[in-house]
Structures are given as C-alpha cells and as structure tokens.
Design a protein around this nucleic acid. Structure first.
Length: 948
RNA sequence: GCGGGGGUUGCCGAGCCUGGCCAAAGGCGCGGGGCUUAGGACUCCGUGGCUUAGUGCCUGCGUGGGUUCAAAUCCCACCCCCCGCACCA
C-alpha cells in the first residue's frame, strides 16, 4: 500500500526548500504566465474550487516540464458585500452564521476576532486557503500573493490607476439605470440577495394617460402592449383598492397608492393630493388620447394595485383577461346600468390580424380553453402568453390603427410607444417582472439610479476591438469562443461602483466604491510587480499613476518618474522588467460561469488599458464545467459541499487530484465520485509494485513483445502530449494510467515472469509514464522517480519525447494477432467444454493472402485481376469465392496483411506463452500441409483452429 | 424569450469534426474461473438477443425522416435535459 499522505508531505517540503515554483526573470527561457482567478475568501476551498484550480496547476506543471519558465501566482479577493454581511451577522450574534463558521474550523476565539473587523475574517480564510492549496500540491510562487481591497493599499493604488486611466480614455461615464431595489436596505437587490423572485428583472411599462372627462386629471393606465391602445373599450380599476390623486411632474395623475413610492424612485416628483378608493372612479369616463373616444371606468377583480399603476386599459379583442372581465360584467346587468354603460360599448374592437386566429383572438382562446371568469388566473395567464407570442411574431395591425395600419406588431411595437411619448400621451414606469422580496423581508421595486458611474461597455469601437482579438485568441475548449463573442455583443454599460461593501473608493468620487467585478479585471499585471512590492515593502504613496504608467505602459522617463515618486530607479526598472518579461497572461483558467462576466471584462479592460499594444493582451483562456458530487449538484441545502482539505486528509492529494481533474473534459460537468478513486489508486499501486521489482528483471533479449512495448510507448507519448497541450487531462490520464498499464500487463503476461522482462525497456516505459503522470499526481511521481534511482526532481525534469523510429506497426499487429488468436482458441475451447489436450493452429496459405491483399487494395477490380492472374490458376474458383466474401465485408478497409512466414515466426516465438496460457501443447501447421477440414478455415490474421 | 452545451450499451464515459475492422475504447458494477485456509488484493474470462467449433444473423447509439453500397457518425424536422442572461461573487 502506498502511503500518499506521507509521500506528499515529504516532497512538498523539498519543493518549498528548493524554491522550484518561484519564477524570476530569465531571458534564456520562454516564459509562461498562467493564472487562476483569485477566489473570494469567505470560506474554505471546496472540491469545486479544487477542480478549476488543479486543472490550472496541472497545466502549469506540464508547461514547466516543457521547458517554460512558468509563473503561477495566486492572490485573494475580498472586495464586495458578503464578508461585510458575515461580519454584521456575527455582531448580531447570528447563531446560524456562528455555526457555519465553526463547522469550517473557526474557534470561539476566532469568532471573537471576526467581530472586531471584517479584515480579520479575510485573514482567517486567506490563511486557510493557502494551507489547503499547499496541501493539494499547488505549484505557486507565493512571493506574489496579496489580497484585494484596502487591506493591500498598494493594490488599491493600482485600482485607482486603472480607473483613472479608463476615465482618461473615455471608457467611464455617468449614467442612470433601473435596478431592482430594496427600500429598506437602500441598495440594489441582486439575484442571490432575494428571498423570492430569483430571475426577475426590471421591465418598462408604458403609462397611457386617459384624461378624465370634465376634470383636470389623468387616469394613468400601465401596459406592456401599447400597440393595442387603439382598441380600448374601457378602463379597469379594482373596486376596493386604494388609489390616489397625485401631482406627478406637474400633472395630476390617478394611480394606485402602491405606485407612489415607486414613481418617486424613478426620477419623478410625486406629491399625493388626495386618497380615494377604486369605487370612487367607477362609472366616470375618460378620453383615449389616440382617438379622443370617451370610455367608461369599470371594476375588475383581476387588477392588481401593487403592479405598476393599478390601472389597466381594457382591450377585450386581444387580451384574454379583459375579455373575461367584460364577460363577467355583462352577466351583471344592474351594474351596467349603474355605471351607465351599454353592452354595445364594450363590444371588442379588432386590431390585429393573426394567422390561425379570427377577428377576436382573445374571445377564441378564452372559449377554447374553457375559461369561465376572470378568477381563473393561471389559465388566463397561459392564454395571454400564448396569444401574445402569436400576435407579436405573426400579427399585423389593421386599418383601425391609424397611421400604423398594415405594419407588423414586432416591428411597430417600439415605434408606437415612442409616438405616444412624443405627443405627451404616455410616460414610462419600471416594474419587476414578478414579485421580488429582499432577504430582509421587504418587497422590492425598481429604482432608477442616477449619476452612477458606468463602464461604457456598449461602446461599439471597444467591442469591435475585443471581438477581433477574441477571434485571434486560443480557447480551451474551442466552443467557448463563440460564447465570448456573443457576450461582448450583448454587453451593455455596466455600473462599476457601489455604496457598500469592501473595496477601493473611486479616486475622483470617493463616496463610491469600485465594485468587485470591476476591480478584478487586469490585476494579473499586478502579480508581476507584487513580489518586489511585498519583499521591499514599497509604500502605496510611492506608487503614483506616473509610476504605473511607466511600468505598465512604458510612458515617461525612468529617472524623472523615480524622482517624482520617491522610488529608486533600480526598483522602478526592475518592476518594468518583470512586467515586460512576464506579460501578457498566456493562459487563464476558470469555471464556465465566469465567461459572461469576469472573463469577458478581463478582455475588455486589457484591450482598453493596453490600447494599441496587442502583445500585452491575453493569449488564451480555458474554461471548465461545474462540479457535481456523486451525480448531484453541489448546494448548501444538500450539504454536499466537500472541503478540499477533508478529501486530501482522507484519500491523499494525488488520488484527489486524479479523481477530480480527470473526471471531465471540456465544458462538461465534473463529477466527484468516491468509487472512482480506487481505479486510479490501484493503477498507481501497480506502478509502485513494478518499480519495486525492477531489480528482478534480468531479461536481455528483444523479442516482438519488447518491440511492441516500445512502439506503444512512442505512440502514447505523442497521444498524451497532444492531450495535455489541449488541457484534455482525462484523455491524457486514460492513456497513461489505463492503456499504459494495460500494455505493461500484457507485456508481463507475454514474457511469462518478472525475471525474463527486459529491464531497460520496462524502465524506459515506466519513466515516461511517471513523467507524464506527474502534472496530475506530482507527489507520487516524484517518489517513484527517486525510487528508480534518479536524484533530480521530476518537477524540473523535461517532458518525454517520442522516438518515432521505435514505432513498429508490425510488432503491434503481431501482438494483436496473438491476442485475437487466444480469443478464438478460448471460444472454441469453451464450446467444446473439455480441457484440450492439444491445440492445432493452421496458418493460411500465401495465395489467400494475395487475394486478400488484392481485394483490399484494388476493391472492385480485384475480381478481374484474380480471374487473369497466373498465381491463382490452380485455386481460381476458390479465390473468386473468397474475394466475393471479402468484398462484401471489407469495402474500403485498410489492414496490414502478414506474410505466412511472419505468422509462423510469431507463433514460434510465442509458443511458450501460448502453451502456458492454454495449458496444453500447441501444434502449428501450414494450411496447405494439413489434411483436416479445419485447416481450410484458415485466413490471413485468423488461423484455422482445431482443439483435440 | 435570447444565447451556449448536451442526449451512446447496467452506470460513468470514449467515438461523432475527417461515414466503413463499431455490438461500439477504457473504467466501474455484475457473473464465472485461477490464486488463497478464507476474505481482500491480484489475475484471466464473460457481460444486447438468437445462433455457431473460433461463425452468422437480428435489434441497437433521444424520436421521425433523408443522403449513401455503407450512418452513432452527414442533412432536415421534432422531443427532452443542463447552464448563463449583470450591478452579484
């Protein structure tokens, strides 16, 4: 049994002592700069982090062996809200929060310290992360580590420089923007901050103003279908709901009471003048702004006063809810009389021609679905969705729609809304697409934030540059390229500042903090100089914008910059050299969930900051899928989030690395399954055993078995190298550990016993296998390497190279031949049922091989040739028959055909092996020399068999 | 809705781009043999159905069509599943 834990500790110490992962400027070697996004440190690393991280680590280790000077640094991230959230909960002695932290290993003392300041929480988790990463064998240059936020003032300076630069270049602007807002917390409510309403987003309603007849007030109806304004028959309000008359931007509006705070948050001045009830409005009339028609105000139960203005315009021809409500009302003649409305007035007005529907689509669909009244909410919603989809995509406006007649709904929708607004007939109101409740329990609404700072991601010129670069970059896997392009195309301006949380204040407007995704876009550049800053404890004040301009952009004169900043010239030049040498980032690896945000921003910002310097732009991005645990999604509620540390303690780092890194490829979801570990471990143990018995191998001869093993090795090296290059670690390890071990097993079976194995050949094979294993199972490989008598460190060794002259197709064919022969004999033996005394093997005669070869090479022509060729004179009939069969079966296959002498030779060479396997004597005969009818079954590659 | 990725034999997963040694790699599981006092480990054999002295046939790679001498692989339509859609790390 291999003691993985023991081996790991030993080699981790050696690596650290030898500083093998510390990368310095070295112009004699090509550099490779690889990064893994800095993790947000509010918890311990789990298996999900492990997957992405270990893939990165494996690639770093691979590249090191390929002769690159690999820089693999790791920083940590604490910008933003969640840590502050934890801190606040702790200060409130939140039991749940305390329990969670304790479960992750925090002591009572730790908790007390956490309460003091959020920075203590950061420090705690950062330490834990570093320990855990070291534990799994991370090959990081730790001299360059830092944590974001004002805990690293130098980094804050770097962020300031970035934002100053972006602003100078016109990539930052002020703007207004609708967000879902919690009036209690006074902050935007992101998806993850919601108790209810995940996935809901702001949507803009058109508010159409219906002037009350004989009154200086507007009844303001909210609609998502302003194109139906031409077909309004009446207005709906809810009878017992609260409404108000309010002065809104100088006009008097009648809207629901709930709408008041919302409009007030949407850059409108709202002053409530009078509170009324819905019923106070019933029976009154108001004018449709588009045609002046006076329509009645009527009651409907389906109206929701908490949605938009709580006033709805009724279009019974095209809105199922309206149609149902009208029907309900028509059943109650008394009411109609009371409100002074005639049934004729409520006759639906047809507006839209839709394929598949008649004049009154809403009526049709309501009747077809069997809806009886407006109370059947779900059915009505479904009907509305269906009808709207049809009308939007297929509908055309009819002549009732004035100047818009004949146009497609999908094309004209926006235009009508604009047209209404321009004439002062309409306004806008934002509302959530569904109910959203904040974590604090408050119902949210949409607020329009004004004077926010935005990154001008909608800038077409910026986008174009980025897309062009994306087209040139390398992606792993290739599929994500298109996703990046799509993301950039879809990008809109992005708010880049917040009021709360940890982070760097915006340099020119300090009441804002640079938002977290926006501050982590080009920090990889900071790694290049972080070592110098850390080691020489360079003060933040010395890192002026001028300094950064010099280091990163090559602007200015070193002496002058040094003088102005107080830095010494050497340090400044050294930082510049580090950056120049290591930049750009050659590979950034992360989970695919970051494509739509961080990774795209990463590209956007690099191209903005290093404008016109494509040699500093990211070279490649690699993306992997998420991680499942035992086939299930990881989630807090399932409690199946496994800390990386626990796994390492239980199974050892290398088994964990293999099991997770090789569990998926490309963008597939990785699945952590404990049962798979033993497959890897058993192969490692096989290799371990083989290393142990290397000394017992005394064989010197080179038979086909050795040629075979050599040949397989060369092919394996090529295969595995290609796989590593493309980050296809599972493919690589399948070849190394499973196919590779299977080849070894076959080899030892062939030679019969350890003593007869050719040590030189086996050792060469083993060493290559171990090297190719080492990026993923580095500790085990290091151990084996030394056990094989090597004194160098395998992490510093060079990658194996294939010797193509050792590729021997024939040797492989011969071994396959033996294997399939064994198969065939076994089948016969099994059918016979008895243990054989003797097995006779009849080798096909040469003429059959000729036929075979002809058929394979010439296909259709073969028949003719056989008919004319002298070689087949004696066996012509048989040959033609054989050719027919072969043609039928092998239409276009290529297959190596052995000569008769080849077959005889290999059977002789492997006689001992075959007899041992069969447990009886073997007799080999040429087909033409045998009398048995079984002999005629002989085929090239498939001898006739007779069991006695 | 928009965009991206998928559906393969008990399971996990290769293969599909570049059609044909594909009843479909490898692993796991399961069944049997060997080794062993036994178990484990290891090792060998088997693992769609029928059939057969090593063979042949049928069914088969989400569903239904098509192209082809030949399709898991190419084309078309459909069904189903997963992920992202921002001010959040």
């Amino acid at each position: 049994m291999v003691n993985f834990r023991e081996i790991e500790k030993k080699w981790q110490e050696v690596w650290e002592k030898e500083k093998v992962f510390e990368a310095d400027v070295d112009s004699s070697k090509p550099k490779f700069f690889i990064t893994f996004p800095y993790p947000y440190v509010n918890g311990a690393p789990h298996i999900g982090h492990g997957y992405s991280f270990l893939r990165t680590d494996a690639y770093a280790r691979y590249k090191r062996m390929r002769g690159f000077n690999v820089l693999f640094p790791q920083g940590f991230h604490a910008t933003g809200e969640p840590i502050v959230g934890v801190w606040e909960r702790l200060r409130n002695n939140d039991e749940k929060q305390i329990a969670t932290l304790k479960k992750s290993g925090a002591t009572d003392e730790d908790i007390e310290r956490f309460k003091e300041t959020p920075e203590n929480i950061v420090r705690f988790w950062m330490k834990r992360w570093m320990e855990d990463l070291k534990m799994v064998g991370a090959s990081i240059d730790w001299r360059r580590t830092f944590v974001t936020t004002t805990m690293t003032l130098q980094y804050s300076r770097f962020i300031e420089w970035q934002y100053n630069t972006l602003r100078k270049r016109g990539y930052i602007k002020k703007g207004t923007h609708p967000v879902i807002w919690c009036p209690h917390c006074e902050s935007p409510t992101g998806d993850h901050d919601r108790l209810e309403g995940e996935g809901e987003s702001p949507v803009d309603y058109v508010l159409i103003k219906f002037r009350l007849v004989d009154e200086d007030a507007f009844l303001v109806a909210a609609t998502l279908r302003s194109e139906t304004v031409f077909g309004v028959t009446n207005i709906w309000v809810k009878e017992d709901a609260d409404y108000v008359k309010a002065r809104v931007n100088g006009e008097v509006w009648i809207i629901s009471k709930d709408a008041v705070p919302k409009l007030a948050d949407q850059l409108k001045e709202v002053e409530v003048l009078e509170e009324i009830k819905g019923r106070d409005l019933l029976g009154k009339r108001c004018a449709n702004p588009v045609n002046g028609k006076h329509v009645p105000i009527l009651p409907a139960d389906f109206v929701d006063p908490s949605n938009a203005t709580g006033v709805v315009m009724s279009v019974p021809a095209h809105a199922p809810f309206d149609y149902a409500a009208v029907m309900d009302l028509l059943k109650d003649r008394d009411k109609l009389v009371r409100y002074g409305v005639s049934a004729d007035e409520l006759e639906p007005i047809s507006l839209i021609d839709v394929k598949g529907f008649g004049k009154l689509p809403a009526k049709e669909i309501v009747e077809k679905t069997g809806i009886r009244s407006q109370t059947e909410k779900e059915k009505l919603e479904e009907a509305t969705r269906k009808l709207y989809k049809n009308e939007f995509h297929l509908g055309k406006l009819k002549e009732t729609c004035g100047e818009f007649a004949g146009m497609k709904v999908s094309e004209v929708k926006e235009k009508i809304a604009e047209w209404l607004k321009e004439r002062g007939y309409a306004d806008v109101m934002w509302e959530c697409t569904g109910r959203v409740v904040c974590r604090c329990g408050t119902t949210c609404h949409v607020k329009i934030l004004k004077d926010q700072w935005f990154l001008a991601y909608s800038d077409e010129d910026w986008k174009r540059k980025v897309i062009e670069h994306i087209k040139r970059m390398k992606f792993y896997p290739e599929d994500v390229r298109q996703q990046f392009i799509n993301t950039v195309e879809w990008l809109k301006d992005k708010a880049c500042v917040r009021k709360t949380g940890l982070g760097t204040p915006l340099p020119w407007d300090k009441e804002w903090i640079v938002e977290t995704l926006s501050d982590s876009t080009i920090y990889m550049a900071y790694y290049t100089i972080a070592r110098i800053i850390n080691e020489r404890k360079i003060e933040a004040e010395k890192l002026t914008d001028e300094v950064f301009d010099y280091i990163f952009l090559g602007k200015g004169n070193a002496n002058e910059v040094a003088k102005n900043s107080g830095l010494d010239v050497e340090t400044l030049e050294e930082m510049r050299r580090e950056f120049e040498y290591f930049y750009p980032v050659d590979l950034r690896n992360s989970g695919k969930d970051l494509v739509q945000n961080h990774l795209t921003f990463y590209l956007m910002h690099h191209i903005a900051i290093w404008d016109g310097m494509p040699e500093k732009w990211p070279v490649a991005i690699s993306v992997n899928g998420r991680v499942m645990v035992e086939g299930e999604k990881m989630s807090k509620s399932k409690g199946n989030i496994i800390p990386l540390r626990n796994l390492v303690e239980e199974f050892g780092a290398d088994p964990v690395r293999l099991n997770i890194v090789c569990s998926a490829e490309g963008m597939e979801e990785a699945d952590w399954r404990v049962e798979n570990i033993k497959g890897y471990v058993s192969r490692l143990e096989y290799l371990d055993g083989l290393v142990e018995s290397l000394n017992a191998m005394k064989g010197k001869s080179v038979t086909n078995a050795e040629r075979y093993l050599n040949s397989k090795l060369q092919k394996m090296i090529i295969e595995v190298t290609n796989a590593y290059e493309e980050m296809k670690f599972r493919t690589a390890i399948t070849h190394v550990l499973f196919y590779g071990v299977n080849h070894l097993k076959w080899y030892f079976r062939r030679v019969g016993c350890i003593e007869r194995a050719n040590r030189e050949v086996v050792e060469r094979f083993l060493k290559a296998v171990i090297k190719m294993l080492s990026p993923i199972a580095p500790h085990f490989s290091e151990e084996m390497w030394h056990r094989m008598g090597e004194s160098t460190l395998i992490v510093r060794e060079s990658w194996p190279e294939a010797d193509e002259s050792l590729i021997n197709e024939k040797a492989e064919v011969l071994e396959n031949y033996l294997e399939s022969l064994m198969d065939d004999i076994n089948s016969v033996v099994r059918l016979v049922g008895a243990k054989p005394e003797k097995v006779k093997v009849y080798v096909a005669s040469q003429w059959k091989r000729d036929v075979y070869a002809l058929v394979l090479q010439k296909k259709e022509e073969a028949m003719k040739i056989i008919g004319n060729d002298d070689r087949f004179a004696e066996v012509r009939t048989k040959a033609i028959e054989l050719a027919k069969n072969l043609l039928k079966k092998y239409y276009e296959l290529e297959k190596t055909i052995l000569l008769q002498e080849d077959e005889l030779a290999i059977l002789e060479e492997a006689r001992e092996f075959l007899e041992k396997e069969l447990g009886c004597e073997l007799e080999v005969m040429k087909e033409e020399d045998a009398s048995s009818t079984r002999a005629s079954k002989a085929m090239p590659m498939k001898p006739g068999i007779e069991v006695v």
